[in-house]
Design a protein around this nucleic acid. Structure first.
Length: 1136
RNA sequence: GGGCGUUUAGCUCAGUUGGCUAGAGCGCAUCCUUCACACGGAUGAGGUCACAGGUUCGAGUCCUGUAACGCCCACCA
C-alpha cells in the first residue's frame, strides 16, 4: 500500500462538517451548569472574500473555541458581517455604473440603498460560507449583520443616550474629504504616498500702515527695488490654489526678519483681501523655507489648529464637495481644484509675484477606497467626546481587567486613547445607520413676537422649550414619550436638533418631516413667506387647544450615516440583544416576533433573550490583528464600560500579520496574495489550519514565501511550500491510524488462521479501503462484519512494558506543555509540541517498539487476551503509572510474545491515539474527527486504569487531563539510553553503507554483529530489550554485557553513561574513514573540555555561580573526560 | 518625526526568569521502495546568534549605541 492510502481531505471534510452542524454542536444556549466561553468574530466586511489574514484569524479563534468546548465550557462563537459603509457602497456603485451606467445621484438614496440590500442578500454571505469550509464552529444560528434590527436597536439606543448626555455634538471640523466619493474619510482610511510635486515660492505684498490702493501695494511689491520683509513676504507652498482661502500669514515670534511685521497685514493677491501677519511658534519653523507660512485654516490641519489659537484667522472654505472652487474663490469659482492651481500659478506669474518653482517630493494622503488625493476640508460633522470615555477605557487596561497578549500591545492602545481625539462619527454616505437626528429650524409667530415686546433675547430658548414640550406631548400620545431629545444648535439660535431613540419615534419624526415638506410646497403657491407647520399642531390626537407660539420652517433628517465602527463598537453586547429593558425596546423586535417585518431589513434568525446577555456577556477573548487595536478594540471597551459597566472581554489576543517572502503586505495590487480556498483545494483544510497555527508566533509579522502554480483545471494561483509540512503531518496521522493502529486493534472473530488478511506474523492487515468503508457508515464488507473490536480492561503498572510507561509519561508531558502554551496564547508552540509528540515519540518510537509485541506473538489477538483477565484484576487509581514516591521500581517485563503484552500494547495504542486525536482536534478538526469515528468502531471502549465508552463525537469529547499522568523520569532516562544505543547502531550501519557506496560495493541491510558494553544494571536492562535492539538497531547478532571484549578493527561509539557500542568492521568497510571520524570527534570534544576546564578554573565562577550549576559543570567535565579517554583508546586500538 | 517590532543554518522560524556542547521544519548530502506511511524511514553536513560597546563568574538572552528591514501612528508649509 503506498499512495493509495494517503489522506484525502476532500473525501472527508464536507461530510464531517455536516455531521457537526446537524449535531448542533456549534449552538450555544445559556447553561447554568457550565461556565461560558465566548468569542466575537472580528467582523468581516460583507463585501469581503476570505484572505490569508482571515484564515489565520479564524483558525486561531476556532482553535480556542474548540478546546474550550472540549474542556466543558458552554462555548459561543458569535459570527456576523459588517455592513462596511464605504467599501460596500463603492462596490455597488461601481456595478451600477458598469451595468446600467447610472450614478447614485441618478438612482436616488432609497433606490441605491435598496440595490445594496439586494446585493448583500445575494453575495453578502459568501465569506461566511468560506468560513464554514475552514471548519469554523461558529454558532450560525446567531449570525448577525451590523445593519440588522437587533444591532440597529443598540446603535440607536447608544446614539440617543450619548446625545442626551451631551457626549455627541455637532462641530465644524476639518475632515479628510474624498472628493471622488464625496465623503469624509477617517484618518485610519488614509494611505500616505510620496508624490512628486512642486514647491512654489511667491510674494504677498505687505500693506502699508496708511490706506492704499491694492494696485499701488502690488506695484510696490514687484518693483525692482522691492525688499523682502519691507514690501513683501515670500511664502512657499505645494498647493498654491489654497491661497484663495488664506486668512493669515504666520511667522515665528522670535524671527528677527519678521518680528517688526507682526500685527500688520498683507494683501492677499488675486483676492485683494487684507490678511493679518501673526506670530506663532507652533506652526512656524523658522529654519524651513522662508520662515513665512501662508495659513489656510479651512484646508490644512495645522492651519486649522492655528485658527483655533488665533481668532482673527477664521477659516474660509473654498471647495465644493466635488472638489471644485466654490463661491468664496472669487473669479476661480467653478474651476476644478487642479485647474484652479494652474490658473492661480499663471495669474501670480502674470502679476510678477512668482519667485521660483522647485521640484519637490511630498507625502500626500490618499483615500484608501477611491485612491484619489484627500482634500482637508472644513465641514459640519457629528463627534463623540472622548475625554472621560477614553479615560475609563484606559483604566480598564491599566488595572488588568483587559489584558493584551502579547503584553506590549497594551501600549498601542493606551497611547492612542491617551490622545483623546474626539471621534468623528458621521459619514457622507447612504449605506449605513442613518443618523437619527432631525435638523429643525424654528420661527416665532408674528403674533407672539408682537406680544413679547422688547424682550426678544430669550425667544430662541423659549421656542425650543416649546418645541420640546410639543414633541413630548406628541410622543406621549404616540406611545414613545421618552424617545425624543431636543438640543439647541450651538451656532444658530433658530435651529435645534431632535434625536429619536426608537423606531416608532423615528417614524413619527419622518411624519412631521413630510408634513413640513408638504406645507412648504403649498407655500410655494401661496403668499410669501411660505407657510410652515405650526409647532404644536402635530397630530389631531391631542386636540387644537395649545397655544401656538412658533412655526416649524424646516424639519429634515440628517443626511449622513454613522461611521461603520460605531456599530461594530457595540458588537459584544448588541448581538446579545442589548438593550433588553422595556423602555428602550423598539418597535422592531415586536414586529419581528409577529413574523412579517415590513421594513426591507431582514431580521436575524433568532432574537437573543435577556438571558443570553446575562450569560454570554462579557465575552472571554478577542482575537485580532494589531491594526484595529485603536479602531475597534478600544472603542468596544469604551462602549462596553459605558453601557454595561463591564469590559467586553478580558483578553485581547493579537496575532501577527502575514507577509509575502519579501516582507511585503499581501495585496491585490501586488498580486502576492494567497487564497485560502486554493490552499484548501491543494492541501486540505487541516493542513491550512495547522500551518496557520504554526505561524501564530508572538512576532508582529510572519512571512510566507509565495510561488505561482497551475491547478489541474488550468487556473494559475499563488501558493506556498509552507503548507507541505502540515499536509504531510495530516497524512502521517492518517497513515499511522488507518494503516497501522486501527488494523491492529480489530481482530477476526473466528481466529487468526481463518482470516486471509492476516499475514505470517499474525498481524492484522486490513486494506485501507475496507476500514474506510466501514468507518464511513457505508455497506460493511463481509470482511469487516466478522472483525471484532478491541476490548479494554483496567490495567495496572505491572501490566505495562517500559515503552508503554514511557509513551504515557511523554503524553502527560505533552498535555501539560500544550495546556501551558494555550494559557499564554502561544499557539505555534502548541502545534510544535503536539507534532513532536505524535510524530517523534509516538510514531517514530512507540509504534516501532511495539511491533514485535504485536507481530512476533503467535496468538496476538485481543480476543484471547480479553478472555483471560489478569489475576491482579482491579482498577488502578486514576493517578497514572509512575510511582508516587518518585522511585524506580523494577519494570518486570513480560516475555516478548506474551499474549497479554500484545493486548496491553493494543490498549495503550488505542488510548494514546485517542488522546492524540483529542489534543489535535482544535488544530486539525477534520482528520481527527474522521479518525475518531474509525477508532470508535475499532475500540469502542477504551482507557487505562479505568475504561469507558468513547464519546460519539470528538468535537464534544473531553479535553485530556494532564493530572492523570505522572512524569516518570526514571523510565524516560532508561528509554533515552535504549534510544542512544539504537541510534548508535543505525549510525554505524549508515556509515558502513555510505563507505561501501563510495567503494561501489553493495550495501548491507543489517549489521552482522554488534557488541554493547555497559555496567551490569544497564546491561540487564538492555538485554531485556534484545528483540527491540535487533529490530530497530538492524543487526543480526548482539552481545550485551559488562565485560564483553571489543573485537579488533571495530567501529566504536561512546555514549552517555559510559555505554560503548562496537561493530566489527572487518570486511565491511575501510578503517581509515572510521579513524578520521574518531579524530574529528575527539578534537571537538577536546575543545569543549578545554573551555569547561577554564570555566571551572575561574575562581569567580566557582564562588559566584549557583552551586547546582557548578556541580553540573563538574559532572559534565568528568563525563567528557571519560569519553575522551575512551575515544583515545579506541583510536589507538584502530591503529594497531 | 513618534511608537513598536525584526535581524539566529541556504529558506521559514523556535530559543520562557541570563547556565548553550544554540534547536525545529523545509531544502541539501548519503543510505533504504524492510512488512502503516516516499506526503515515508534512517543518518549526516551546515551557525564568528546583524554590528560596536557595557553589565555579569557567565550574554543568543539584560543595558546603551549603530546599521538594515518592516509595521503602526503623526506629518512639515
Amino acid at each position: 500500500m503506498s499512495n493509495g492510502g494517503s489522506y484525502d481531505p476532500h473525501a472527508v471534510e464536507p461530510e464531517i462538517y455536516r455531521f457537526w452542524e446537524q449535531g448542533g454542536y456549534f449552538h450555544a444556549t445559556p447553561n447554568p451548569a457550565k461556565p461560558p466561553y465566548v468569542i466575537d468574530i472580528p467582523l468581516p466586511n460583507v463585501t469581503g472574500a476570505l484572505h490569508l489574514g482571515h484564515a489565520l484569524n479564524n483558525t486561531l479563534q476556532d482553535i480556542l473555541i474548540r478546546r474550550a468546548r472540549m474542556r466543558g465550557f458552554e462555548t459561543l462563537w458569535m459570527p456576523g458581517t459588517d455592513h462596511a459603509g464605504i467599501a460596500t457602497q463603492a462596490v455597488v456603485e461601481k456595478r451600477l455604473k458598469e451595468e446600467q451606467n447610472l450614478t447614485r445621484h441618478e438612482l436616488g438614496r432609497e433606490g441605491l440603498v435598496r440595490k445594496i440590500w439586494e446585493w448583500k442578500e445575494e453575495y453578502g454571505s459568501r465569506i461566511l460560507q468560506q468560513l464554514r469550509r475552514m471548519g469554523c464552529s461558529c454558532d450560525w444560528e446567531r449570525t448577525r449583520f451590523t445593519l440588522d434590527e437587533v444591532c440597529a436597536r443598540a446603535v440607536y439606543e447608544v446614539f440617543f443616550q450619548w446625545f442626551k448626555a451631551g457626549l455627541i455634538y455637532r462641530g465644524l471640523r476639518l475632515v479628510n474629504w474624498d472628493a471622488h466619493l464625496q465623503t469624509a474619510v477617517a484618518d485610519d482610511e488614509i494611505i500616505h504616498e510620496t508624490v512628486k510635486g512642486h514647491l512654489w515660492h511667491y510674494r504677498y505684498p505687505i500693506l502699508p500702515d496708511e490706506p492704499a490702493e491694492p494696485s499701488t501695494v502690488l506695484a510696490r511689491a514687484v518693483a525692482p527695488e522691492a525688499k523682502p520683509g519691507v514690501d513683501y513676504l515670500v511664502i512657499a507652498t505645494t498647493r498654491p490654489e489654497t491661497m484663495l482661502g488664506d486668512t493669515a500669514v504666520a511667522v515665528h515670534p522670535d524671527d528677527p526678519r519678521y518680528k517688526h511685521l507682526v500685527g500688520r497685514h498683507c494683501l492677499l493677491p488675486l483676492m485683494n483681501r487684507p490678511i493679518p501677519i501673526i506670530a506663532d511658534a507652533e506652526l512656524v519653523n523658522p529654519e524651513f523655507g522662508t520662515g513665512c507660512v501662508k495659513v489656510t485654516p479651512a484646508h490644512d490641519p495645522n492651519d486649522y489648529a492655528f485658527s483655533q489659537r488665533h481668532s482673527e484667522a477664521r477659516p474660509i472654505n473654498i471647495l465644493t464637495p466635488d472638489g471644485k472652487i466654490n463661491e468664496n474663490g472669487g473669479p476661480y469659482a467653478g474651476l476644478d481644484r487642479y485647474a484652479a492651481r494652474t490658473k492661480v500659478v499663471a495669474d501670480l506669474e502674470a502679476l510678477g509675484l512668482m519667485e521660483k518653482v522647485e521640484d519637490y517630493e511630498t507625502e500626500i494622503g490618499h483615500s484608501d477606497r477611491s485612491k484619489t488625493p484627500i482634500e482637508p476640508m472644513l465641514s459640519e460633522q457629528w463627534f463623540v467626546k472622548m475625554g472621560d470615555l477614553a479615560e475609563t477605557a484606559m483604566e480598564a487596561v491599566r488595572d488588568g481587567r483587559v489584558r493584551f497578549f502579547p503584553e506590549r500591545y497594551a501600549k498601542t492602545y493606551l497611547d492612542w486613547l491617551g490622545e483623546k481625539r474626539d471621534w468623528c462619527i458621521s459619514r457622507q454616505l447612504w449605506w449605513g445607520h442613518r443618523i437619527p437626528v432631525w435638523h429643525a429650524r424654528l420661527r416665532v409667530r408674528d403674533a407672539e413676537r408682537r406680544a413679547a415686546g422688547q424682550r426678544v433675547s430669550d425667544w430662541p430658548q423659549r421656542l425650543v422649550a416649546d418645541f420640546r414640550t410639543a414633541l413630548e406631548r406628541y410622543g406621549a400620545a404616540a406611545g414613545c414619550a421618552s424617545d425624543f431629545w431636543v438640543e439647541m444648535a450651538a451656532d444658530d439660535p433658530s435651529a435645534c436638533f431632535v434625536c429619536a431613540r426608537s423606531e416608532k419615534a423615528r417614524q413619527e419624526l419622518a411624519g412631521i418631516e413630510s408634513r413640513v415638506h408638504r406645507a412648504r410646497n403649498v407655500g410655494l403657491f401661496g403668499n410669501d413667506p411660505p407657510r410652515a407647520v405650526e409647532i404644536a399642531i402635530g397630530d389631531p390626537r391631542h386636540g387644537p387647544d395649545q397655544a401656538v407660539r412658533g412655526l416649524l420652517l424646516q424639519f429634515e433628517q440628517d443626511p449622513d450615516v454613522l461611521d461603520t465602527w460605531f456599530s461594530s463598537a457595540l458588537w459584544p453586547f448588541s448581538t446579545l440583544g442589548w438593550p433588553h429593558e422595556e423602555g428602550a425596546r423598539g418597535q422592531g423586535v415586536k414586529r419581528s416576533s409577529d413574523g412579517a417585518p415590513s421594513a426591507p431589513r431582514p431580521l436575524g434568525p433568532s432574537a437573543p433573550s435577556p438571558a443570553d446577555l446575562d450569560y454570554f456577556y462579557p465575552t472571554t477573548v478577542l482575537v485580532t490583528a494589531r491594526e484595529i487595536i485603536t479602531l475597534w478594540v478600544a472603542r468596544m471597551v469604551l462602549t462596553g464600560l459605558h453601557f454595561t459597566g463591564r469590559v467586553p472581554f478580558s483578553h485581547v489576543y493579537i496575532h501577527p500579520n502575514i507577509q509575502d517572502g519579501q516582507g511585503r503586505r499581501m495585496s491585490k495590487s501586488l498580486g502576492n496574495g494567497v487564497d485560502p480556498l486554493d490552499i484548501i483545494e491543494l492541501y486540505g483544510t487541516d493542513a491550512l489550519r495547522f500551518t496557520m497555527a504554526q505561524m501564530a508566533t508572538e512576532t508582529q509579522d510572519a512571512r510566507m514565501p509565495v510561488k505561482r502554480t497551475k491547478l489541474p483545471d488550468g487556473r494559475e494561483i499563488n501558493t506556498s511550500d509552507r503548507f507541505e509540512p502540515a499536509r504531510n503531518f495530516c497524512n502521517k496521522l492518517w497513515q499511522a491510524a488507518t494503516g497501522f493502529i486501527l488494523p491492529n486493534l480489530t481482530v477476526a472473530a473466528d481466529g487468526p488462521s481463518a482470516d486471509p488478511s492476516r499475514d505470517r506474523e499474525g498481524a492484522v492487515r486490513t486494506p485501507d479501503s475496507e476500514v474506510r468503508r466501514s468507518a464511513h457508515g457505508g455497506t460493511p464488507s463481509p470482511d469487516t462484519e466478522v472483525r471484532r473490536h478491541m476490548d479494554a480492561r483496567p490495567l495496572r503498572a505491572e501490566n505495562l512494558a517500559i515503552e508503554d510507561r514511557w509513551i504515557l509519561s511523554r503524553l502527560g508531558a505533552c498535555i501539560r506543555e500544550a495546556d501551558r502554551c494555550f494559557e499564554r496564547y502561544q499557539i505555534s508552540d502548541v502545534a510544535d509540541t503536539l507534532r513532536t509528540f505524535f510524530w517523534g515519540d509516538f510514531c517514530d518510537w512507540y509504534l516501532e517498539l511495539v511491533k514485535p509485541r504485536l507481530y512476533d506473538s503467535a496468538d496476538s489477538q485481543g480476543a484471547r487476551a480479553s478472555d483471560s483477565p489478569p489475576s491482579q484484576g482491579g482498577v488502578g487509581g486514576g493517578s497514572g503509572f509512575a510511582p508516587a514516591d518518585g522511585g524506580h521500581p523494577p519494570v518486570v517485563l513480560p516475555e516478548r510474545g506474551d499474549c497479554d503484552s500484545a493486548a496491553v500494547a493494543r490498549q495503550v495504542l488505542a488510548w494514546v491515539l485517542d488522546q492524540s486525536l483529542r489534543l489535535l482536534h482544535p488544530l486539525m478538526p477534520f482528520v481527527t474527527e474522521a479518525l475518531w469515528k474509525k477508532l470508535g468502531e475499532a475500540a469502542p471502549r477504551r482507557g487505562l486504569t479505568e475504561t469507558r465508552d468513547a464519546e460519539p463525537a470528538l468535537i464534544a469529547a473531553a479535553w485530556p487531563d494532564a493530572a492523570t499522568y505522572t512524569r516518570d523520569a526514571a523510565v524516560e532516562r532508561e528509554m533515552a539510553a535504549l534510544q542512544d544505543v539504537i541510534r548508535a547502531l543505525r549510525d554505524t550501519l549508515a556509515r558502513i553503507n555510505t563507505s561501501r557506496a563510495a567503494a561501489k560495493t553493495p550495501a548491507i541491510g543489517k549489521l552482522p554483529h554488534a557488541i554493547i558494553r555497559a555496567d551490569n544494571e544497564t546491561a540487564a536492562g538492555l538485554r531485556r530489550q534484545r528483540t527491540v535492539l535487533l529490530r530497530l538497531g538492524r543487526c543480526e547478532r548482539l552481545e550485551i554485557g559488562a565485560d564483553v571484549a571489543k573485537p579488533a578493527e571495530s567501529a566504536t561509539q561512546v555514549l552517555a553513561g559510559g555505554v560503548e557500542v562496537y561493530v566489527p568492521l572487518a570486511g565491511l568497510m575501510d578503517l581509515a574513514t572510521e579513524r578520521q571520524r574518531l579524530q574529528k570527534e575527539r578534537d571537538t570534544l577536546r575543545g569543549h573540555i578545554e573551555r569547561l576546564t577554564g570555566k571551572l578554573a575561574n575562581e569567580d565562577f566557582v564562588a559566584r555561580a549557583p552551586a547546582a550549576v557548578v556541580e553540573q559543570e563538574r559532572a559534565r567535565l568528568a563525563e567528557m573526560r571519560a569519553r575522551y579517554t575512551t575515544l583515545e583508546r579506541n583510536l589507538a586500538d584502530l591503529d594497531d
